[in-house]
Design a binder for these strands. Structure first.
Length: 583
RNA sequence: GCCGAAAUAGCGUAAUUGGUAGCGCAAUUGACUUGUAAUCAAUGGGUUGGGGGUUCGAGUCCCUCUUUCGGCACCA
């Protein structure tokens, strides 16, 4: 999809359209006060205070109409530069603009833009006249916290998008509609991947048989890869004592986001929100020499987090999840090499799944924020510099994000954009100098002295839940053969004459380990073919008199109109080949 | 959690101002015996998300809880 913000022309146009929106709102709601109206990747929005008024669906139409009217009128958009005093006077009725002006550095030139009866404080640039903002659409509206702070007042936000031509706008709106069609929640329901039930609770997905097949394939796939890389897999309990999390420091940072503790006899337990503390103790179970490192402890671990009710979403954001987790215990010298192996693994996995749209994000702490991050400047500088150094040596493109680190250390996150909603983190690889200290981990170095290891936390799939959600959206529910819940569907042309042969082929494929269905209903071939295609089954076999007579198999691949007829051996080879190539 | 919107059969949906809950697909049964995206007919299926209220009467109005959706905030 086109990125408005990265397109210079569309960016200016959309920003002007935000002003047009504000002008129309001002006409309809004279008491409206305005905060900011920036351009974003998807278009633009404007945040405003409408007093006691909250917008309704119909209001958007009214505002759109007013915008069209103003646009038709075609007033010029004129820039003027003013002093801070003039600006403070001009916007004296709007506390939000006063806030903006007061926070501007003294030396900055203050500019505003006037179009007809409306003037907005703005850096610009803008298009020449409001006439250019002709092909726009208001997309959605919602509340949003002033300055993005949940303690502040809720402002009204309206989102929209603007293009140069009607065709471009239409195309964009169509694409938005197509994105909704690939939403994993929609496909997940259609394909019986997962379900939810209000008696189980929000954010607690139940994986149905088809989803369980996909997940099992993912587990086997990553287990084998990790096994080959020297990971040792463990099983640890889904509960821990509160003291375990007090030791790690998670309790102080996240107790509000955990399920409440349960007191049994004299001890308090929580459902575990993550597995690091358990793995620290697995490491500590034995005395380690520097010769043993790196030690890589992996686990497919179910965790529970009390995510905010407004945050839960399908398989993407849940309260019960399974992490593809591992903790690597390394010497300081081994950080670079181990980190590289993790990044290589991430890249290899994405290649296997055909995932192309992702970004690496280097997540750093906000040095100003002394409460969110463990307070030890030296430790942070060491960790962040080391991580940046490793990334630069790996030669992968990444961007830095301040304030996105974990409380114990900086991370490399992989960001992807779901069909609906903001970007989410899939894979993560984190550098941690803190937890090994908290749990007093050590190893014996060459000189027989105790040293503290460094821990790398990493999750390749992130959680199986979120990865599956993304996989569904990437593939649009058209899975490669090795992942498909049903791999081959068999349709006999005539049940009476061909059922026996069809059953023989079904057994042959089952014996070879494939997931096969036989459509034995008394329906027309075309009826069954339609269903097979709609279910997106990778391979459909058609068996009629020709196949029976010559002991052959005819099949059709999903997405192809062509029927291929081969011997049984050739067909088995064909399947095997596709599985190996993961397509 | 916050600001909005919504919840009707397995799925997708309809029901003027409050007045007998319909339809399509799927399912079941019967007929048809089929060569690549829908054969025909019949039948069953609903405490309209839960609880409470207003009313002669509630899918429809009010309160409340739950869940879902669009954003915001959060995300170890």
């Amino acid at each position: 999809m086109i990125n408005i913000k990265e397109n210079e022309d569309l960016s200016v146009l959309n920003h002007s359209c935000a002003h047009l929106l504000a002008q129309a709102v001002k006409h309809l709601y004279p008491e409206a006060k305005f905060w900011v109206g920036p351009v974003i990747n998807e278009g633009f929005y404007y945040d405003m205070d409408l007093g006691d008024i909250t917008l309704k669906e119909e209001d958007l139409e009214k505002i759109e109409k007013e915008m069209k009217k103003i646009s038709k009128d075609g007033k010029r958009i004129v820039r003027h530069e003013i002093s801070k005093e003039e600006a403070l006077d001009m916007f004296k009725d709007d506390p939000y603009k006063i806030d903006l002006i007061e926070n501007m550095p003294d030396e900055e030139v203050i500019s505003c833009y006037t179009q007809g009866d409306f003037t907005d404080l703005c850096r610009g640039p803008h298009v020449e006249t409001v006439k250019e903002c002709k092909y726009f659409k208001l997309l959605k509206f919602s509340g949003s916290y002033y300055k993005g702070d949940a303690n502040n007042k809720v402002l009204q936000r309206i989102y929209g998008v603007c293009f140069r031509t009607e065709e471009e706008l239409k195309e964009y709106l169509n694409e938005l509609e197509e994105m909704k069609q690939r939403d994993h929640r929609k496909i997940g329901k259609e394909q019986d991947i997962f379900m939810n039930h209000e008696l189980v609770g929000a954010g607690m997905p139940l994986w149905l048989p088809n989803g369980a097949i996909i997940r099992k394939q993912l587990e086997n796939y990553i287990y084998e890869k990790e096994q080959k890389m020297g990971y040792q897999h463990v099983y640890t309990p889904c509960v821990g004592t509160v003291n375990l999390y007090k030791t790690s420091g998670h309790w102080d940072h996240y107790k509000e986001d955990m399920f409440p503790s349960m007191k049994i006899d004299e001890e308090e337990f929580v459902l575990r929100p993550m597995n690091c503390p358990h793995h620290m103790l697995v490491y500590k179970n034995k005395l380690h020499s520097y010769r043993d490192l790196p030690i890589r402890i992996g686990e497919f671990a179910t965790d529970f987090r009390y995510e905010a009710s407004g945050a839960v979403k399908g398989l993407e954001r849940v309260r019960s999840m399974c992490q593809n987790d591992a903790h690597l215990f390394v010497t300081p010298e081994q950080i670079g090499e181990e980190f590289k192996k993790v990044v290589d693994l991430i890249l290899a996995v994405y290649q296997d799944f055909g995932i192309k749209n992702y970004k690496f994000r280097l997540s750093l702490r906000d040095p100003e924020d002394k409460t969110k991050y463990f307070d030890d400047d030296e430790m942070w500088n060491q960790a962040e510099n080391k991580l940046r150094e490793v990334l630069n040596s790996l030669n992968i493109p990444y961007f830095e994000a301040i304030g996105e680190a974990a409380f114990y250390g900086p991370k490399l996150d992989v960001e992807v954009k779901p069909a609906v909603g903001p970007e989410v983190t899939l894979s993560t690889c984190q550098l941690d100098f803190l937890l090994p200290r908290r749990f007093e981990l050590n190893y014996i170095d060459q000189n027989g002295e105790k040293q503290t290891p460094v821990v790398i936390h990493r999750a390749i799939f992130g959680t199986f839940d979120r990865f599956t959600a993304f996989l569904i959206e990437e593939t649009k529910g058209i899975y490669p053969l090795w992942l498909a819940p049903t791999q081959v569907n068999i349709i006999p042309v005539n049940m009476e004459y061909h059922e026996e042969y069809a059953k023989a082929i079904e057994n042959l494929l089952k014996e070879n380990g494939y997931r096969v269905s036989l459509d034995a209903r008394n329906e027309k071939l075309s009826y069954k073919m339609r269903e097979s295609v709609m279910k997106k089954i990778p391979v459909t076999i058609i068996l009629g008199q020709r196949e029976v007579d010559e002991n052959l198999i005819s099949y059709r691949e999903f997405g192809s109109e062509e029927t291929i007829t081969v011997t049984k051996e050739e067909f088995l080879n064909y399947l095997k080949n596709r599985i190996e190539k993961k397509n």
